[in-house]
Design a protein around this nucleic acid. Structure first.
Length: 136
DNA sequence: GCCAACGTTGGC
DNA sequence: GCCAACGTTGGC
């Protein structure tokens, strides 16, 4: 079964619309051991929520892993990795952080507990709950 | 723009 | 190998 993830990006830097325009994006520049380990664990076809940080503060769409990890030549290839992702679809309505914080079922969500982690795993239950909040 | 949280670096 | 200083991230 596919695993679920959530990845953050500042829309100023790289937003959902940029990914859609490119059709396939390389998720690079992640310089954090925990996030990097999560990326290494990703399998092709895993589902990922795209979250806009700093501006927006909401989950805007779903993407999936199109190519598993490889060395990140934009940073330190011996240390960090990239994955390739492609957009699946935009959510009917974006799910704001504020709403997720108010939902007791999402209290253990990695982005709430550890805000600075940019790539985090999600349980199937959390995935479903966020989808439900998006009206799906 | 500010500041808290947290990871990393470097002097000892 | 410890820990203070520093840099970066991200919510507010």
């Amino acid at each position: 079964m596919a695993q679920y993830w959530l990845m953050k990006s500042e829309p100023d830097e790289y937003g959902w619309d940029d990914l859609v325009a490119e059709k396939e994006g390389i998720w690079d520049g992640v310089k954090n051991a925990q996030a990097s380990n999560n990326m290494k664990a990703m399998k092709k076809g895993d589902q990922i929520f795209f979250y806009h940080s700093r501006q927006g503060l909401e989950v805007v769409g779903i993407m999936e892993v199109s190519e598993e990890h490889s060395p990140d030549v934009t940073t330190d290839p011996d240390r960090w990795v990239v994955v390739k992702v492609k957009p699946v679809r935009k959510l009917d309505k974006a799910v704001p952080l504020k709403a997720m914080k108010q939902n007791p079922k999402l209290k253990d969500l990695a982005i709430i507990r550890q805000t600075r982690l940019s790539v985090a795993p999600l349980t199937a239950g959390e995935w479903e709950e966020i989808l439900a909040m998006a009206g799906e």
